[in-house]
Amino acid sequence: MAKITGATVVDTDRCKGCNLCVVACPLNVLELAPKEVNKKGYHFAREAVADRCTGCASCAIVCPDGCITVYKVKVDE
């Protein structure tokens, strides 16, 4: 069966840590970095768990700053 795997890349320098992508993700893939900050002092978003993303792009669609790029591939098992 083909499985869909996705990945997100966050432009951490432009991210403002608004948390909207974390809320929008149906699979709780993303989190705000709890300690690290970017050069503007925001706790940027990042992938918390690998391999769970399906590339639905909900996070990127709601991102007000257009920081997230989403990739998706079909994997034949």
């Binding site: 890349v9 690998a50 669609i61 989403v70 990739y71 998706k72 591939v73 994997v75």
Partner: peptide, 16 residues
């Protein structure tokens, strides 16, 4: 499949 295999220009589903 590693993340590097997924993150390729032909696999983009959403970008700014």
């Amino acid at each position: 499949m590693t993340k590097e295999d997924i993150i390729k220009p032909e696999n983009v589903v959403y970008k700014k």
